[in-house]
Design a protein around this nucleic acid. Sequence first.
DNA 1: ACAAATTTTTAGACGTCTCTAAATTCACTT
DNA 2: AAGTGAATTTAGAGACGTCTAAAAATTTGT
Lengths: 218, 218
Amino acid sequence: MTRSEENYIKAIFHLGGNTPTLVATNAIAEQMETKPSSVTDMAKKLADKGFLNYQPYQGVSLTDFGIKTALSIIRKHRLWEVFLVRKLDFSWDEVHEVAEQLEHIKSEKLIDKLDELLDFPKYDPHGDPIPTKDGIFLERDKQLLSELPINTKGVCVGVKDTSSAFLKFLDKYNIALGKTIEVLEREDFDESLHIKMEGKELQISHQIASNLYVKKND
Amino acid sequence: MTRSEENYIKAIFHLGGNTPTLVATNAIAEQMETKPSSVTDMAKKLADKGFLNYQPYQGVSLTDFGIKTALSIIRKHRLWEVFLVRKLDFSWDEVHEVAEQLEHIKSEKLIDKLDELLDFPKYDPHGDPIPTKDGIFLERDKQLLSELPINTKGVCVGVKDTSSAFLKFLDKYNIALGKTIEVLEREDFDESLHIKMEGKELQISHQIASNLYVKKND
DNA sequence: ACAAATTTTTAGACGTCTCTAAATTCACTT
DNA sequence: AAGTGAATTTAGAGACGTCTAAAAATTTGT
Ligand SMILES: [Mn+2]
Ligand SMILES: [Mn+2]
Ligand SMILES: [Mn+2]
Ligand SMILES: [Mn+2]
């Protein structure tokens, strides 16, 4: 597996999930910041190698083997992100770029030992689940803050937008995973929310609320 | 800098050190397990980029910039080796292969934080010195065990042969860095040594003694 | 149902890194 | 000083991954 092949498989997984949906050539090209013609070439190669099914003009879908491969790369990516935050004091907006490189290191022992060092974390610093060694991958029960009803509370469990800009914005307002947020009021005009967090009230735009995942309190 | 360029620079440094000696094309090819013609191509490219001086038919020598680059790669390699041994319980014969990959990860912050996590180690698991962030690189005061006079003691500080086979052999006989060895007798016939280590006497071949570095006791 | 717009593929090319085979240069011996 | 053998470079090609431009297939809209 070359680095490029791994990146394509990861991109296709992110676009199609484990569903048998066909992922379009253009969608992959956009995700990878490359050209559709390059995607076609790679699709043929990955199909030959058994990672995906390629239907010309229709799109591609990962095989079971392809999904397994994707999960292994995602596992590595997210474990390294946890390592960087917990052991090397990186902030959550700095880890992705480095994890993009580290995820391609080939050593099963390395990743198993890293998992152990970190005490088998279930989620990465952005709240995304970490697949287990045997490919078990459970999406967390969560919803967007923007969809939380008025006068209910939820715990921050993840972000949808993982851009550095958004993460730094959250840092600035002390919004972090694990904190409890109560929705006080929703403005009809611009869908902005009045929320309460750690006793303090603040107002956040729809753009923020629709990129923050919460788990509703039981 | 591509991964291939980095590997060439590291190989050239290992062959020539910081001396202005010319390193031969064939020597580089052998070290890199590639063909001389490939080395010539790369030598031209690296000379263009300012990493080395290339004298056709004579060989190459690293520029100051090339040496600085080599030291930075070696620093990364050795810090990762320390990490693998100290934090992930790798044994000293397993780390090199993984460090060969990790040394190419590009992030200054990563390596500085790793250095800090490991408490700024001076030597790697094989006793080789780790260059500092600003390129200071001191060879340790050491000699081969085979050159230690009779009835003198020395502390194991490094290995010359870093092959997995040799390192595992040392493990088997409990020979490890930090242990004190006394030379009791040298057989003229095969240059094998009678040594004493931790109260126990054993006999080791010249091949072993000439691949183990010790620091003579004052 | 057909024309237009969009998506996807094909064809041909380029940069990087590698190789083999052949030519050239160097170093050593006589 | 010339000849021989080794080291090195050059020439030409292939694998990989990318691109642009053009062709083909599909989808969309009337
Ligand atoms: Mn990430
Ligand atoms: Mn993440
Ligand atoms: Mn090593
Ligand atoms: Mn080492």
